[in-house]
């Protein structure tokens, strides 16, 4: 009797924990599949009847959603790729060279509010005429991707045993070859984790694009936000757009949940 009660209580707590996440996402889906009449009905209509895909069609038809999607792919793709090219060797250099002070700098960079980079970078891009370009956004997103990638790579390279590299160098390998052919393959899981987290945080970033993005170079989050304020779009298409914006990161979360959990308990920090 006591055991059953305990078990029941346990499952009740699981239910309570998971339901806020489930309910918000379900409501998002519900809004996106209902017509305007049902969305503004009171009491609210919970289950779309009949469900309609019109909102999704509208999102693509009435906005430059395709363009913004492409912008997001360019900005996030560029920033993650550059971040990996620059950040992975840096993580190696810091881990092997025991450059603790540099590591602390990376941590502080990781902690600093994104907003605080925005004023100087905005002025800089104004002087160089880059405001409103994809290039400016890619450069700014490096502020997000490099620290997270370096930080995670330090942890992974510290776990790669030194002996293998020593052995390869004794056999005449240069330190670059030792890195490229010995350490790098062993740290591959770290590269995957760092890349995934950098992708998520860069994709989700909002404020950089609000300030630095032009009408044609906006990324998805700020584009969706702007459609709310300036075009007074109705709830259905807005919910559909919001869902489309966040869908890629949710899919990545589901597919790569093990790596993400590993990376977050190692890096443990979100973006600013």
């Amino acid at each position: 009797m006591n055991r059953t009660l305990k078990k029941l209580g346990f499952w009740a707590s699981v239910f309570v924990l998971v339901s806020p996440a489930v309910l918000v996402f379900l409501w998002m889906i519900s809004l996106s599949l209902k017509n305007e009449l049902d969305n503004t009905a009171f009491p609210p209509v919970f289950i779309p009847d009949p469900p309609t895909l019109k909102n999704y069609v509208d999102v693509f038809a009435q906005n430059d959603f395709g363009l913004y999607l492409w912008n997001s792919i360019l900005v996030t793709g560029g920033a993650v790729l550059l971040g990996l090219i620059v950040g992975v060797p840096a993580g190696y250099g810091i881990a092997r060279g025991k450059a603790h002070k540099f590591a602390i700098l990376i941590l502080v960079a990781r902690m600093t509010p994104a907003l605080s980079y925005l004023i100087p970078l905005f002025l800089l891009f104004q002087i160089t005429g880059l405001v409103g370009t994809i290039t400016a956004l890619v450069i700014t997103h490096l502020v997000i991707t490099i620290p997270i990638i370096v930080w995670i790579m330090i942890g992974y390279f510290e776990n790669v045993p030194m002996e293998l590299e020593d052995a390869s160098r004794i056999d005449g390998a240069t330190s670059w070859q030792a890195f490229r052919h010995v350490a790098l393959p062993l740290a591959k899981p770290g590269i995957v984790v760092g890349g995934i987290l950098a992708f998520i945080f860069s994709w989700n970033n909002f404020i950089f694009s609000v300030v630095l993005g032009g009408k044609a170079s906006r990324t998805l989050p700020s584009a969706v936000y702007n459609s709310l304020t300036f075009e007074q779009i109705s709830w259905g298409p807005l919910a559909a757009a919001a869902l489309l914006v966040t869908l890629p990161v949710l899919l990545v979360t589901v597919i790569a949940q093990r790596q993400i959990v590993a990376g977050l308990s190692a890096g443990g920090l979100k973006d600013g």
């Binding site: 699981v14 924990l17 998971v18 806020p20 996440a21 489930v22 918000v24 996402f25 409501w27 998002m28 809004l31 503004t40 009905a41 009171f42 609210p44 998520i200 994709w203 989700n204 909002f206 998805l220 989050p221 700020s222 969706v224 936000y225 709310l228 709830w235 807005l238 919910a239 919001a242 869902l243 914006v245 966040t246 990161v249 949710l250 990545v252 979360t253 589901v254 949940q257 993400i260 959990v261 979100k270």
Partner: peptide, 30 residues
């Protein structure tokens, strides 16, 4: 269930904030 629980922290904040705004609507909010 753990994946479901972790999802909110991965979701794009702006997208979720828009849905919360609709839920907070004084007359029509759920």
């Amino acid at each position: 269930l753990r994946t479901v629980f972790v999802m909110p922290m991965m979701a794009t904040p702006v997208a979720v904030a828009l849905v919360w705004t609709m839920m907070f609507h004084p007359q029509l909010g759920v």
